[in-house]
Amino acid sequence: MMSRFFQSDGVYYFLRTPSAIVAAIIVVIIVGGAIFAPWIAQSNPYDLASFSLMDGLLPPVWQGGDPRFLLGTDNQGRDMVSSILYGARLSLFIGFMSMAIATVLGVGLGLAAGYYGGRFDAIVMRIADVQLALPAILTALLIDGISRGLLPPSVQQDLRVVVLIIAIALSLWVNFARTARASVFVERNKDYVQAAMIMGQRPSRVMLRHILPNIMGPLLVIMTVDLASAILLEATLSFLGIGLPADSPSLGTLIRIGMQFQLSGEWWILWVPTIVLAALVVSINILGDFLRDIFNPRLR
C-alpha cells in the first residue's frame, strides 16, 4: 500500500516541484503549530494570569529583547509567538469548518441539481445566480449584520465564531455547487452510471458512491483554493472589526491590533502576524495550483 503511494504520479510530480515542497513544509509547520498550540506555546493569550504587563512592548530577540520572548511582546505583555500559534489555531479552525460546510452544502446541492435536473436544478441555479450577484465579502458582512440584529446581545459574543463560520460558508458554496453540477452532467451519461441506475440502486447511492468519487479531482482543487479564501475572508472580517472580538484573537484580529503600533515603531506587533498569514495563504494557493496541474494532464 505504502509503496504504491510513493510510486504514484502525484508524488512523482510533487518531488520534482520545489515550490510545492516549500509550500507544503510551510503549511505543515503552521498547521502543526496551530494544532499543538496548547502544548507548545509558553503562555496562553486567553489566560490573563499567564502574562504580565511588565513585559509589554519588548522587541524581538535580535533587536535586544528578552530571550524569553523570541519575537517580542505586544502592549499587554503577551508573547508574540504564543499569540500567533493561538491566532493561527483559530483562523485555521474557522477556515476548515467553513470550507467543510461549504463543500457539503455545495456538493450536495450541485450533485442533486445535476442528477435530477428540471425544476430542482432551476431553483438551485437561480439561488446561485442571486448569490453570485453578491460578492463573497458582502454576503459575509450581511450575515454578520443580520445576526447582530437578530441575536440577543447576551449570546452574541459566544456565538461570534459560529456566525463567522456560517457567514463564510454561505458565501463560498456556489463554486462547489456549479462544479459538481457541471461534472454530473458529464458523468451522468457514462456507462458506469447508467449501469448503476439500471441495477436499481437508489439515487443517493449512485450520486455518492459512483459519481462523487469520479469528480473528486476538481473538487479537491476548489477545496484547497477555498480554504485559502476562507482564511482570507476571516482575516478580512476580523481586520474590519466585525469578525472576532479582540479577546479571542485570530490572525486578522492580531493584524488589526498591530495597526495601532504602525506609527510608533513597534513593527513586530503588526508584521509578525501579517507575514504568517501571508505565508500560510500563499502556500495553500501554491498547493492548489499544483493540484490543478496534477488533475489537468494537458498542462504538464
Binding site: A228, L232, L277, A278
Partner: peptide, 14 residues
C-alpha cells in the same frame, strides 16, 4: 502574481 492573489487586500494597503 501568485503572491498578489494570496495577500489580503488590507495587507497590501498597510
Amino acid at each position: 502574481t501568485l503572491v498578489g492573489v494570496s495577500i489580503p487586500t488590507f495587507v497590501i494597503g498597510i
